[in-house]
């Protein structure tokens, strides 16, 4: 098996055919659904059922985008998603940074508090969302932006806290200690010294919180209906119909995946920390 040759070997003997094939196949596997979705989104409806399929639409059209955004309320979903994801991201990054700093510098609550937060990450959402649905209906937060913002803030907090926890632990204390000696309060040492130094980490944590909110479906499905619905829940409209709405579904998908992919690729330096909640530096 050529693919399992030792890594970083200085000599190059021959062209690694096995590797190129494997990587090429995998690249094709990743790109193919994306291409087909894009292709479907600009394909006239007449081209849906031809044999052989239309690989490159000869007369590309934007009608599906128009229908998806307006007739299917995709634009409303997009705006809701933006409002809810951005608000939850800001809150999550803010509260997460506050907590992470306290955990990292003052060892607040020992290991118990930090692992308690981590354990929230592994709770199955179905266990939380059922009672939250009942509570929200009782207090009037069901199908409101505020309700989903709070839910998303809590749902992304473990990631924000742990990413920032790892970041602060990797940062030298000396600057903050110097600030304290110079007469700063602890708040000033945190806000004026530590936070600016940790800014890249905070931005990275915020990006991953945003992507998590932007792509989330389950909470939005259950906690919203006709007012605060987010972009992923709009796809419910396309389930079960045979054929007619493929273009609209594809167009909405393309609109929805552009922001999160752009952000994710820009923040890919922090990806490993984001995926492992700071456990691996990467």
């Amino acid at each position: 098996m050529a693919a399992v040759a030792p890594v970083r070997r200085p000599k190059r003997r021959s062209i690694p055919v096995g590797r190129i094939l494997l990587l090429g196949f995998f690249l094709l596997f990743v790109l193919w659904p994306l291409y087909w979705m894009f292709n479907t989104s600009i394909k006239p409806s007449d081209d849906y059922l031809t044999v052989p399929p239309v690989w490159f639409p000869s007369a590309p059209t934007l009608v599906h985008y128009e229908a998806a955004l307006f007739a299917y309320r995709g634009l409303d979903g997009l705006i809701n998603s933006l409002i809810i994801s951005l608000s939850a991201t800001v809150l999550s990054a803010l509260f997460g940074t506050l907590m992470a700093y306290s955990l990292a510098r003052y060892n607040t609550g020992g290991q118990h508090l930090s692992f308690w937060v981590l354990s929230q990450r592994f709770l199955p959402p179905i266990g939380i969302v059922l009672p939250v649905f009942l509570i929200y209906r009782g207090v009037g937060l069901y199908d409101t932006h505020i309700g989903l913002i709070i839910a998303y803030t809590v749902f992304t907090l473990p990631v924000s806290v742990w990413m920032m926890f790892a970041y602060f632990r990797g940062m030298p204390k000396s600057m903050e200690e110097a600030a304290l000696v110079d007469g700063c309060t602890r708040w000033e040492a945190f806000w004026r010294v530590a936070v600016p130094l940790a800014a890249p980490g905070i931005v990275a944590a915020a990006v991953f919180a945003f992507i998590a909110c932007w792509t989330e479906f389950f909470f939005a499905l259950i906690l919203t209906s006709r007012t605060a619905f987010t972009l992923p829940t709009v796809f419910r409209a396309f389930i079960g119909f045979q054929g007619a709405q493929y273009g609209e579904a594809a167009a909405l998908a393309i609109v929805s995946l552009v922001p999160s992919i752009a952000l994710g690729v820009l923040a890919q330096r922090h990806l490993v920390r984001g995926l492992t909640l700071g456990a691996v530096r990467g």
Partner: peptide, 11 residues
């Protein structure tokens, strides 16, 4: 290769 990680499972 990392693109799928940033896409909603719904999509």
């Amino acid at each position: 290769l990392i693109v799928p990680l940033f896409i909603s499972p719904v999509i």
